[in-house]
């Protein structure tokens, strides 16, 4: 066991736990944001650099601070480590920088993007971004690609978190696509239209933190905050059958996996459940789903009023 202090909160965690997971065990405001780390996916993380934190004390044995900010999702805790996340101006400054970098080539087409309302980048930009861009050049664009009949890839919005690559690699059992080219010309590709075709390919939509991979059965049908999330399940011979239905009235607009407060799927679901079972008679409804994340989806939900710390409301 290792004792770690994050922003003044001390917790004891098993050896080998990452700083990010230790922070998640504590919970609350001190959890660093993560755009690329996805705990069910092995090897994910370390890439987006939004979870950078300052280690002000390395460990009990070696109390020297770490010279650089470290990616909390891939750095294991040491006994006696002291970490500063929101209490470190250096961290916040670097995070602001990362958000700016992520946004300079992002199209910011939130008004027409299906991910809007549940987009991690939106949340991140809202909390850490600047209101005005300093980028005055053309943004990177790509053509939209259809991946099979159900998934649309819009690379222009991609932040290259590699989550979908790991998903296709690990959940579907065979390597199907990867990243081509390099630097800011990198793109998710390799005969993608032909390659991704199996029962679990739809999960790449759930893992995508932005609107780069979207559900074609839901595209442009509604906004997520107009739909009502319901926990439901069905007998499925391929997957666990536990899903969230996003309804307008009795009509199922969209089916997704159940995600926890960090947007990570609790259990992956198959394409049949996701794309083909769109009638209420297919599902046994358990009740309304509580969405923990403080994004726009929760704004008019059943249980919680809008949290008081929401910056936009405080300003108004």
């Amino acid at each position: 066991m290792a004792k770690v202090t994050i922003d003044g909160h001390t917790i004891e965690v098993p050896d080998g736990t990452t700083i990010l997971n230790a922070a998640r065990m504590i919970g609350g405001n001190i959890v660093p944001p993560a755009m690329c780390y996805y705990s069910p996916l092995k090897g994910s993380g370390g890439k987006c650099r939004t979870c950078l934190v300052e280690v002000s004390k390395g460990s009990e044995k070696d109390p020297r601070p770490m010279p650089k900010l470290v990616a909390s999702c891939s750095t294991p805790v040491m006994d006696g480590m002291e970490v500063k996340n929101t209490s470190s101006p250096r961290t916040l400054e670097a995070r602001k920088g990362v958000v700016e970098f992520l946004l300079i080539n992002h199209p910011l087409d939130c008004p027409v993007c299906d991910q809007a309302g549940e987009c991690h980048l939106q949340d991140l930009a809202f909390e850490h971004g600047a209101a005005k861009t300093r980028y005055e050049f053309d943004r990177r664009t790509f053509d939209k690609i259809d991946i099979g009949p159900y998934i649309k890839l819009h690379m222009t919005r991609c932040i290259l978190c590699y989550r979908c690559v790991y998903t296709a690699d690990q959940i579907t059992g065979s390597r199907m696509h990867g990243v081509m080219k390099r630097g800011d010309a990198s793109e998710i590709s390799t005969y993608i239209e032909k390659a991704i075709d199996n029962d679990f390919s739809g999960n790449v939509i759930d893992v995508c933190p932005v609107g780069a991979l979207t559900d074609k059965t839901f595209r442009f049908k509604s906004r997520v905050w107009y739909t009502k999330p319901l926990d439901a399940h069905r007998e499925c011979d391929k997957c666990c059958g536990k899903a969230v239905l996003w309804n307008v009235g009795d009509e199922i607009y969209r089916v997704t996996a159940r995600k926890d407060q960090y947007g990570e799927a609790e259990e992956f679901i198959c394409n049949t459940c996701r794309f083909e079972k769109k009638s209420m008679s297919d599902w046994i409804v358990e009740g309304p789903r509580k969405i923990d994340r403080h994004s726009v989806i929760s704004a008019n939900k059943y249980f919680e009023p809008v949290p008081e710390h929401t910056p936009l409301l405080n300003k108004a």
Binding site: G97, F101, D184
Partner: peptide, 21 residues
Amino acid sequence: YHHESCGQCSPCREGTGWMEK
């Protein structure tokens, strides 16, 4: 450096291109 950035992590991928421009 813009040309040679691997594109894996965001500060280098986006920042080098921006500096070049």
